[in-house]
Design a protein around this nucleic acid. Structure first.
Lengths: 332, 332
DNA sequence: GGGGCCTGTTGACACGTTTTAATTCAGTCG
DNA sequence: CGACTGAATTAAAACGTGTCAACAGGCCCC
């Protein structure tokens, strides 16, 4: 069972290897009759093109990398959907990597992508230190930041997190809250600090001091993190309203509060961020800040492929969407 | 800025390319002094090994493929976590593919994986037709079926879905249900039919006819599918109890029923399948059937890598876990 | 009828790494 | 002192594809 390559196919079809390669890559350049013969040979022999060889020859593969903070977060799943739809239209593949909010894992992932010679990388960075990306960019690999605004020499697609934080807290204040808590993941994550910045802006606009908003920082932005935050809150004096940096945290908080006998929204108002699908089905349907996730992935990918296709005539763009407030039971 | 390869590194360190390769792959075979020199050259030049070239030479890459039915389903996310933990311990990469329950997309994914010369593939097949896998297996690529029992000539790791369906319906019957509905995705999906088989077994055991369980088939196994199923149910006479083939469907059903003013569990009992994290946080905490998802991914990967490492001395195994009933509000 | 042109096809080389057998060299033993 | 050993290193040959310049042959036009 010797491995069947382009050579064996050529022999069987009575043509040269070069012609087989043409059938695969520029079918229009080969006569219909020869093409048919070659295609039949391919089918008969069960030939599958060796992608590594093609990549080696071409210098880059027909794949892009997507590095997200948490594959378990429906927000990133939605982004990934947008990415994949565009990418598969253009006959590329996407390599999905999970950094788990850890800079070390991010660096590992980026190295693997560099080794694989991907054409470009979409990444939601774990922190502000973008120097890890230089490894790629100086090798000519296109990079687009996803859900992270950039400052000029790179493309980015993001949502205005400051505005989102403002929206959320302004809403809570309008409902009469006076003592608030902000449940968040590590403050090294830009989304977390930006949303807090917006929250504080809303406080100022309402004439309240910054200390009206207490930070509750937990290590992981998922439901367990939320539960942990709720414990912390329960051990002190409960605030009137809680703003969570994402919906997974909010769901965790909600569950833990309910178990402790605290009623939402009667005792405490609650609002999350991302408006993931499950939020509306929660025990108490969750207010949230909606972002155009699918669009985020779609536009980012189009930008990336554009940069890949014309590295010279490409102008870096920074696109920023506006988020939207969705009010449900948890803050009514 | 010519591409920097193993050759340039060799030149800078004053050794031959072969030695550089040895530093990369078998550091123990090269003298400490030379190794240090080479490593410094690598750092200075920012060398990144070309994975395609290595793969081409080796005949296979240090990666495995994972093909799931739906990346948006937390069940598969949990499986993927198990896979990735094992794989990264062994310094391999995992290429995640989404078949979206479509055989065509599955076939496309498998072709890409074959082109990439992955060492092995973990797959939850979209249907019973396993012939698509032959393309891989006859090329010597190891395959392990995930969440799909096999019949002998291939490894598989699964959970007893018949038992699960039995558990769920037996529970509903014990609570006094007499007219039931089974909300499910396409019956070409094995999980769906097996769970129905178990459901019917429970009916028989209780002395009820098969027609006491009405099938409601929807095209997609997510929350929108559930909403669609709820519409269908509402247009007729409501059953006493509803068994959903997975939790996403159940959450969709739950929301649609609530909006229509139907109370769960007072008017209708409801149970899902998979016990995803969100189920316990739902408006009405959802009863479900729990499966050892993480274990599923972990064991499957170990089996796969075992087969890769010793293709000859490998005995195919079929492992089947037992599911577990989790009772919550929705059926209390 | 010959020159030029267009379409199809070919052959050979390059891509960057790994590996194997061969080579060097210092040290050791008979 | 010469032969041998073993460790460290090297040179060269793959791996399978894509590309590009060259080439064959048929056609048209003058």
């Amino acid at each position: 069972m010797g491995t069947v390559g382009i050579r064996e196919v050529a022999q069987r079809a009575g043509v040269s290897p070069g012609t087989v390669s043409n059938v695969l890559n520029r079918p229009e350049r080969v006569a219909a009759a020869t093409r048919a013969r070659v295609e039949q040979a391919i089918r008969e022999l069960g030939f599958v093109r060796n992608g590594s060889a093609a990549t080696l020859r071409a210098g880059q593969s027909r794949a892009i990398g997507l590095v997200v903070l948490d594959v378990g977060n429906p927000f990133f799943v939605a982004v990934a959907r947008g990415v994949e739809d565009v990418v598969s239209d253009r006959d590329h593949a996407v390599i999905l990597c999970n950094s788990g909010e850890s800079p070390e894992r991010e660096a590992r992932n980026l190295r693997v992508l560099a080794e694989q010679r991907v054409r470009g990388v979409l990444i939601t960075p774990t922190d502000e230190d973008l120097s890890r990306l230089d490894l790629l960019r100086q090798r000519g690999v296109a990079v687009v930041l996803v859900d992270h605004p950039a400052t000029g020499d790179v493309c980015s697609v993001s949502v205005d997190d400051v505005a989102g934080g403002d929206l959320a807290v302004a809403h809570l204040l309008a409902r009469g809250a006076e003592r608030l808590a902000y449940v968040t993941g590590p403050l090294a994550i830009r989304q977390c600090t930006d949303r807090r910045k917006g929250a504080r802006r809303a406080l100022r606009a309402a004439g309240l001091p910054a200390r009206a908003l207490e930070d509750v920082v937990v290590p992981e932005m998922n439901a367990s993190g939320g539960a942990l935050a709720a414990e912390k809150l329960l051990s002190g004096e409960l605030p009137d309203a809680i703003f969570c940096a994402n919906d997974l945290l909010a769901l965790g908080v909600l569950r833990a509060l309910s178990q402790a006998g605290v009623r939402v929204p009667d005792d405490v108002s609650l609002i999350g961020y991302d408006d993931i699908e499950f939020s509306s089905a929660a025990a108490v349907p969750l207010s949230s800040i909606r972002q155009p996730t699918y669009q985020l992935g779609k536009i980012a990918t189009e930008l990336l492929l554009d940069e890949c296709d014309s590295p010279t005539g490409h102008a870096h763009q920074q696109i920023m969407f506006q988020p939207e407030l969705v009010v449900r039971e948890s803050s009514r």
